[in-house]
Design a protein around this nucleic acid. Sequence first.
DNA 1: GGCGTTGCTATTGTATACAAATATGGACGG
DNA 2: CCGTCCATATTTGTATACAATAGCAACGCC
Lengths: 224, 224
Amino acid sequence: MSSMSKASERAYREIRGLILSGDAPAGSPLTEEALADIVGVSRTPVREALRRLESELYVVRSDSQRLFVAAWGRDDLGEMFTLRAMLEAHAAARAATRITLAELEELRAVNARLAASVIGPVPDIAGFVAENRRFHEIVIAAASSPRLSAILASLVEQPVVRRTAARYDRSELARSGHEHGELIQAFAAQDPAWATAVMTAHIRRAFHAFAAADPAAVPAVPAV
Amino acid sequence: MSSMSKASERAYREIRGLILSGDAPAGSPLTEEALADIVGVSRTPVREALRRLESELYVVRSDSQRLFVAAWGRDDLGEMFTLRAMLEAHAAARAATRITLAELEELRAVNARLAASVIGPVPDIAGFVAENRRFHEIVIAAASSPRLSAILASLVEQPVVRRTAARYDRSELARSGHEHGELIQAFAAQDPAWATAVMTAHIRRAFHAFAAADPAAVPAVPAV
DNA sequence: GGCGTTGCTATTGTATACAAATATGGACGG
DNA sequence: CCGTCCATATTTGTATACAATAGCAACGCC
């Protein structure tokens, strides 16, 4: 079972789950003891989880030390996508000259599964999100920059991706797969400039598709 | 006294000091209890400090959970400067359209002091580093992006800046002040593209000046 | 009635005790 | 001589107890 992991890991995932699911709405206070009761561990691992969530901007610390669920605004969301576009584009550039053949093969396999997840009678959104995430993880790993990886890991993407994908229609999902395909071509050609351009366009288009789909919904997405 | 701050803060600063000073050389193990004894607090605040230092890549975690002082390589250093150039350039672009008159004035004052610190018979390196740091902090704050601020704060710059400035000759220091001046002009003109270009050039030139000064010394700088 | 003060309560910060996990060193057998 | 395995020691992970601090409300004072 996955529950064999450390208590602090479980606390992190569960608390983040509370935030992403909306059970802990933006602005609501988070007290260590209450969370400890919910998760079923002591305050110690809860504290560690909260510090991590704070550094990832899921929660914010008030004037004095009380923690609250962070609230995202429309501008915050745009800024986060801009940062991701910039940083992942850089990752793609590095990956272009560093990616291994094995990684390239895995990218192809992931993208094939990703494409398959949208051709059925009803698109498999969960599968799409998972494979999409995996795709980007491989690219970031291929960049082999611990710093870059650490930064991107903290650029909370899951809430956005999850809610975003649900809004995509089939053509959007297919287009995403197509862009991944072009990225793979750029990697195969070991062309950093090409890879950068494709990745930048990919992320920026995804954001604009999301924002255009339902502008009013944007501010509802949680985070700082 | 400054010792009124929390124990975890003190632990963070002291442990980071051990790393930056070289008392804890790259690769040496960091055990919680030993550090607790050195700092004079219990393991709890030491743990928090170590998690933070880990997220900032001052320390790395081995296969299983033991922490060691991180070791920087030449490529790591270049990559860090590249990331800083990219992110601070973005911060400058945002700041160009968001900076307040008060902040602009403070930038001018800081840059004046910065220039003054290098005109004496012997350059005031410590003063230069402090004012330089302050200058960049103001720009980052003016960008008003919590995410960006958080990321840049974790992009450990102190060790590099400190050791770097010591290598600068007077003309390098003066040139840095001049570039700051142009950045201020770009802000006054509220021109994001200009600000981005100046900041990018500023940071990249600083890195290359450092790398050119003594290439062999580069790998000696600590971090991951 | 306004307002500061005081005591209480809720919450975070720190220390310590204990449990679990991991490395270490030596005995033993090949 | 080398590797394996077990006992032990070291180190990290978690829980709990306690201390300090901030918020809050009731109370009295002016």
